[in-house]
Amino acid sequence: MEWALAYLLLGAIAGFLGGLFGIGGGTILVPVFLWLFEAQHLPPDHTMHLALGTSMAVILFTSLASLRKHHQHGAVDWRVLRHITPGILSGTALGATSAALVSPHFLMVFFALFVYFAATQILLDFKPHAGRELPGIAGMSLFGTFTGWLSSLVSIGGGTVVIPFLIWCNVPLRRAIGTASAIGFPIAVGGTFGYILIGSHLPALPEMHLGFVYLPALFWAASASVLTAPLGAQTAHRIQVPLLRKGFALLLLGLATKLLLKAIV
Rank of each mutant, 00 (worst) to 15 (best):
V161Q: 06
M140L: 15
V162Q: 09
G136Y: 04
S152I: 07
T147Y: 14
W149K: 13
P164H: 10
T120C: 01
L166T: 04
V161A: 11
M140Y: 09
W149T: 12
K127F: 04
L153W: 07
M140P: 04
T160W: 05
S141D: 11
G157I: 06
F117S: 03
G158C: 13
G157N: 08
L142Y: 10
I137A: 15
G139E: 07
F146I: 15
E133I: 12
A130K: 09
R132C: 02
G144I: 12
G158E: 13
G136M: 03
M140E: 12
V115F: 00
L134V: 09
G139H: 07
G139W: 06
A130D: 10
H129G: 02
A118K: 01
M140H: 10
I137Y: 15
L166E: 05
G158N: 12
L124S: 04
Y116K: 00
V161F: 10
Q121S: 02
I156L: 14
G144D: 10
Q121T: 00
G157P: 02
T120R: 01
T147Q: 14
A119Q: 00
L153S: 06
F117D: 02
D125F: 03
F143S: 12
P128K: 00
T145I: 12
S155D: 14
D125N: 06
I156S: 08
L142A: 14
